[in-house]
Design a protein around this nucleic acid. Structure first.
Lengths: 266, 266
DNA sequence: GCCATTTGTTCCAATATGTGGAACATATTT
DNA sequence: AAATATGTTCCACATATTGGAACAAATGGC
């Protein structure tokens, strides 16, 4: 078996499906619409092959080919994802707790889960903004520099944490970002003993949060809840005040999840 | 080439990818979590094959296999879909108009697009509810019994409408549902001449709406905007009053889309 | 408006990949 | 403990994917 350029080099045990979704992701995650050649340049795959893959993705509705020959993510993804979202037990159990935290603090409350080394946001409660699906939902952010992310990482068993971090480049987003490994590990240890994590403008300047992890029995699902606010309004002392409540909310959700899985499932 | 039972019988020209996403859809669209055998019963595919397909889908993060051996839609779908949503030109152009319609009417405003014979909801502006991603976004509803759906169908050229409707079973959701073909065609003709469509509790009892179609130049994208309200609060006369504004909003969006595609693209 | 060049699509032999039946594990029930 | 249902692995065979190259269509320069 040979190594390949471009996508699909790492995970080549999902066969043709893996290659196809690698192409899908390449197009969907791009900042701007891509024409055939743009994809070709990055996919590292022969023209004929790539062309067929794209055609199939389009025919399946996972991509769309618009009038100016640009591939864009397709509507079918939305349809599929809406089911993911609606059926998420974690989201359903957490919703009332998120709402309660929002009413307590008046600030934005997030629910996220750890997926690899990223946090994927599952839900959000917010006051100010008009009522609309927030671009945050479904969004992926690095775990090591977000509140929920750090709380989740700290909740991982040692054996999983190390390898996970090995694969991550600790990029600096702000002056506060913890961008070296020893410092991050110290931070995670502190979080472990405190039971909650702070984000001190580490991902975005002007944004602070306090978060606590939600862990299920077998560490098969690790996520968290956070209360987020603008630095000018939310001091670190305020975050510290909310920490116990956030922790309690996270624990409640974890408890409900456990109760659900215990008697009901395995 | 032989016909097969179960999924994949109709569209068998997307190769292995098509079969894989058929399995994905089967699992994602199911009402409840499915165990291996549940999928097996409906997929009409040999055990070995199905097992590998599911494994690959899980490994790619499109499905997840939880502790009690149930397959569920995976988080990666959310991540991919959030890009679909964020990057949708239609959504971006329409957003301010939706907001304006909401402020005018005080009722819920929807944006949807026609995908096959279904309307997929792309956005929603609503007052009452807490600010959260609404389960409606990404959701698919039959076109023939929703406001946006009928408006969109009426905007299709004859040549596309007929075949599309041929493939649809006109199921009755409420006593008001237009469940036979001639009546539906008469309704579409009426919508065509009026320029807007009403949903008179045809999909859900107690829910009414008025909608207008957004059509782009080559009919490559057809969708619509609607104002929806509970029947007890929103009479048909109120809907009729709003119709011109809804029509105007839809036309504005269509205009902006055309302006965007014209100079910029082809 | 014509030629050169880029961009996109189709074709086909070689072969890697998926297929599907059946045997093998593993859980669950009687 | 035996029987049944459920989930997983194996391997000869068929087929879908591969990828190079030829072809067509669109763009751009002159």
């Amino acid at each position: 078996m040979e190594e390949r350029d471009g996508i699909g080099a790492s995970n080549s045990n999902t066969g043709t499906l893996g290659k196809a979704v690698a192409v899908l992701e390449l197009v969907a995650m791009a900042e701007r619409p891509m024409r055939f050649t743009d994809v070709f340049d990055r996919a590292g795959q022969p023209r004929g092959t790539l062309h067929r893959q794209l055609s199939h993705l389009v025919e399946e509705g996972l991509l769309e080919l618009n009038a100016d020959h640009c591939y864009e993510p397709g509507l079918r993804l939305l349809k599929l994802a809406s089911r993911t979202w609606m059926r998420s037990d974690l989201r359903r159990f957490a919703a009332p707790h998120l709402q309660a935290l929002h009413e307590l603090t008046g600030e934005t409350v997030h629910l996220g889960v750890l997926k690899g080394a990223e946090i994927i946001y599952l839900d959000k409660v917010e006051s100010r903004q008009a009522v609309r699906m927030d671009s945050q939902i479904g969004r992926a952010s690095p775990a090591y520099c977000t509140g929920i992310g750090k709380a989740a990482l700290a909740a991982l068993p040692e054996g999983m944490l190390g390898p996970l971090l090995d694969g991550v480049e600790l990029r600096r987003f702000t002056p506060q970002t913890i961008a070296d490994r020893p410092a991050l590990e110290a931070e995670l240890a502190a979080i472990r003993s405190a039971g909650h994590a702070f984000d001190r403008e580490e991902h975005e300047v002007g944004i602070r949060c306090v978060a606590a992890a939600i862990v299920d029995a077998g560490h098969s699902l690790v996520g968290g809840i956070s209360v987020t606010g603008p630095a000018y309004r939310v001091g670190e002392d305020a975050l510290a005040d909310w920490a116990p409540q956030v922790r309690r909310a996270a624990q409640s959700v974890a408890g409900e999840l456990a109760a659900r899985l215990g008697p009901g499932g395995a």
